[in-house]
Nucleic acid binder design. Structure first.
Lengths: 345, 345
DNA sequence: CTGTTAGCGCATTCAA
DNA sequence: TTGAATGCGCTAACAG
């Protein structure tokens, strides 16, 4: 028969004069058949170019050896943020140990959760979904185990993250303590075309809380701090930086939600012939390896991106094997390295 | 029945008093059933929490809506190179248009091609495989359409790349023309534990040819150029840079195979209180967006990473729909921006 | 417009 | 040890 070109288990079986079962055993539990039959089967398999169909196998054993990673926006956008790459590296590290592959899922047709419906995976990692997102519902409908990353801690699902409130508090304090009052907080603007994701994530909410707590502590009026959504790309943050710094009274302190935003400011400062921290103080989240190139290295919350991804995947694997799993708040430190100084004006 | 917890198409059909076909139509071609049956089916589906199983669906229609991207080394390693991220962004862009997801495949158990056997995909993109790699065989065995990226142009498969020989030639010329003779070429060292991948790729071979052609042209003896395998991470290139620059007679010109390698040199130069291009000239491949942060911006071959990924995916989609597809050599320019000057010593 | 009937390719229980 | 039969959940010809 062999209609679609590729040999099937049946072809191989009849060609080798054995049953389908024997062939199946040869590929899955060789110890259950005799050495000779095994050899014969494998020889003919090679000759025929037979290899078991992963999809059919997946259906039969109810396992695909893949986990999905659900991104909040399009791939082209999200991967402009090197922090995401760090996460992915961590996930990859854990997956390779378990012989799993990673399926990158992004919002299809603008719907955040859409990709989950059709994903051929055993479980899912979810990035930065709001607590009230319906992604939880979707996963449960499909019976998919899932772990969230940077999505806030709640009782009914496993989350890996840091103490964002505290981290943001410390960062804000760094600026306030140095005397800054004209402060701009750079938010992670969601893409406008993925409406569903535009509800601010739990992480962002927590960070804002932390910032406000610091301000209260220093008796600073909330109106003095400006919140600006500048997204997570070098380009958008460069633009934002230029527009901010060209003001008559530009901010003296910048609090970024991501290293990649800080890059824009470093770049702009350079282009304008200014200098950090003399003319502008800046603090940020992430502290990615590549930020070592910046001079001075930005004061930052040291986010363990790699570790986060790794840990999240590990917890997911526990769920997949029906083990207990629980949320983890990873440690992070504040590194005050040299991008903060008292305001000059 | 409903054994595994999740409702199946059969459950839904009997519950709704219709046949399985009707349900299938409701989800796949709603226009083929009456408005009322559709509504009834969808209502009960929602009530039951039914959603079609992607694996079963994949088996039946022989289509998974996924393409794989096969990496030459582990994910944690490969994604240290931001060029790869650029490629991925391009692939993502193309995939989202076609409603495809990306499966990231890395060598399992140290075998480059191993992941391909079990990958639940309709086609594969292959990164930088050597021309004589058996990955071609594997894909053909599985009947998987595939497109290579940066793998050299050959007649029997579709490849997307640039003219590496010429590009490398131009880069080398930049250094030679400025008068450099103590030159170090930074190679992309493969990880030692993936033996299969250690045969140098077509791309590297072509680049070396280009470099040698330039040297011949300038009458420079080949022995004056040093080839050093320093890998593709900030750390490894930083180490290499320090060891090179601390020599008694350090090289005056560096030719990198990737931006990420140049980062290490910029960093080292900074740490040593030296300056580019006064104390060291450097040219490189890639010219990634984030390299704008470097000062001076490195002279480089402008590699269209995003476009490459995008184009490769598009060609693969053509193959998937049985259309004609062909290799493409993308344009690239040499940007001589300011990281090259005559040697000072 | 709707239902019946076969597969899709493989894993696995139960007998032999 | 091996083989026949059944099921995984869904799609798609083919009838009705």
């Amino acid at each position: 028969m062999r209609q679609s070109g590729r040999p099937t288990i049946k072809d191989l079986a009849s060609r080798a004069g054995v049953s389908k079962t024997a062939v199946s055993f040869a590929f899955n539990s060789p110890e259950r058949i005799s050495k000779e039959t095994y050899q014969k089967i494998m020889d003919i398999a090679k000759e025929l170019g037979y290899v078991p169909d992963p999809v059919a196998r997946g259906l039969a054993r109810r396992k695909t050896q893949c986990i999905g990673i659900l991104l909040p926006q399009s791939i082209a956008y999200v991967f402009q943020n090197p922090y995401i790459t760090e996460l992915l590296r961590g996930v990859g590290e854990a997956c390779e140990k378990e012989n799993y592959s990673i399926l990158v899922l992004s919002p299809l047709e603008g719907i955040f959760t859409h990709a989950v419906y059709n994903a051929v995976v055993d479980g899912v990692l979810i990035l930065g979904a709001a607590g009230d997102s319906d992604v939880h519902t979707v996963c449960r409908q499909r019976g998919l185990p899932y772990v969230t990353i940077d999505a806030g801690f709640r009782d009914d699902c496993v989350n890996i993250g840091i103490d964002d409130e505290k981290a943001a508090y410390e960062l804000a304090k760094l600026l306030l303590e140095a005397g800054h009052r004209r402060i701009c907080v750079c938010m992670l603007q969601p893409l406008s075309d993925t409406l569903e994701a535009s509800g601010s994530s739990e992480t962002i909410r927590n960070r804002c809380k932390g910032i406000e707590r610091a301000m209260d502590e220093y008796g600073v009026d909330k109106s003095q701090v400006e919140y600006m959504e500048i997204g997570t790309s070098c380009d958008s943050s460069l633009d934002a930086a230029h527009s901010l710094l060209s003001r008559e009274k530009p901010p003296t302190g910048i609090l970024c939600m991501a290293d990649v935003q800080a890059y824009g400011f470093y770049h702009a400062v350079q282009e304008l012939g200014l200098s950090i921290p003399r003319d502008l103080s800046i603090v940020t989240f992430d502290n990615l390896p590549q930020s070592n190139l910046l001079h001075p290295k930005p004061s930052a919350v040291n986010q363990p991106g790699f570790q986060k991804g790794c840990r999240a995947a590990e917890e997911l694997f526990k769920l997949l094997s029906a083990q207990e799993s629980q949320s983890t708040m990873l440690d992070c430190q504040i590194l005050n390295i040299g991008s903060v100084a008292p305001p000059s004006t």
